[in-house]
């Protein structure tokens, strides 16, 4: 843990979060959220929490951004929130009071990495001392997640698979599901891929799809 770096990364995290909220273009917000994930990953790495850091860097910075862009493709790119001045001026003091309350409460927390902290009493000592002996696994995080608390992991995996199933249930459209088809694709089984306007054949045959427009613009 390096104190000045921690301070800087905390500041950068706050800046990135505020920017991601303020930016009207949702694509920039997606990019900023990916950057936010990277900085959070740096923060976790700074306190030697490498497992969390890797998951944050992998899922937050790489994968969820693409899924966000897919969602933007299906909906709209610009956020159209109206500014409500009255709500803003009532929310600001409330948020400030909440932050003050949290800061005040955090003074009673134990220090980071304090071995006498309440979280480090009880079973965690057993896990730390018994892990290598019980499971031959040097990485305590893995043995905790997949052995001691594997039912939690089972539940988490179930949540992810359920999310995929729910996405399929909501978004997959069959032929003749409904009439108001806003995405403009042809619901016709195998032909729908061609009807959606992708021109792979042109790409593969080496023809530049923009050649016509360039010619038209420069003739």
């Amino acid at each position: 843990m390096i104190v000045p770096l921690d301070i800087i990364i905390f500041l950068v995290l706050i800046i990135a979060a505020v920017l991601a909220i303020n930016v009207k273009d949702l694509l920039a917000a997606v990019a900023l959220l990916a950057g936010y994930s990277l900085f959070a990953s740096l923060l976790f790495a700074g306190v030697n929490a490498v497992d969390v850091s890797l998951v944050e860097a992998a899922l937050g910075a790489g994968l969820t951004g693409v899924l966000f862009i897919g969602a933007i493709l299906a909906t709209s790119r610009h956020s159209t929130a109206k500014r409500n001045l009255r709500r803003r001026w009532t929310m600001l003091p409330l948020i400030a009071a909440f932050i003050g309350l949290m800061l005040f409460a955090s003074t009673g927390l134990p220090d980071r990495g304090d071995p006498e902290a309440p979280a480090h009493q009880g079973v965690s000592r057993t896990y730390l001392s018994q892990s290598l002996e019980d499971t031959e696994t040097p990485n305590v995080v893995t043995s905790l997640l997949a052995d001691y608390r594997s039912q939690d992991t089972l539940g988490e995996t179930l949540v992810i698979v359920t999310a995929a199933l729910a996405a399929m249930l909501v978004l997959v459209r069959r032929e003749g599901d409904d009439e108001d088809d806003t995405r403009g694709s042809d619901p016709g089984g195998d032909t729908s891929g061609e009807a959606r306007g992708t021109t792979d054949d042109e790409q593969e045959s080496g023809r530049d799809p923009y050649a016509d427009e360039r010619e038209g613009g420069r003739r």
Binding site: S41, G65, V66
Partner: peptide, 18 residues
């Protein structure tokens, strides 16, 4: 370095999608 390698590989995807 494992984390950095993973990030260097994955950070390629988002600009491509954008």
């Amino acid at each position: 370095l494992d984390i950095a390698l993973g990030y260097a590989l994955l950070a390629f995807l988002l600009p491509i999608a954008l």
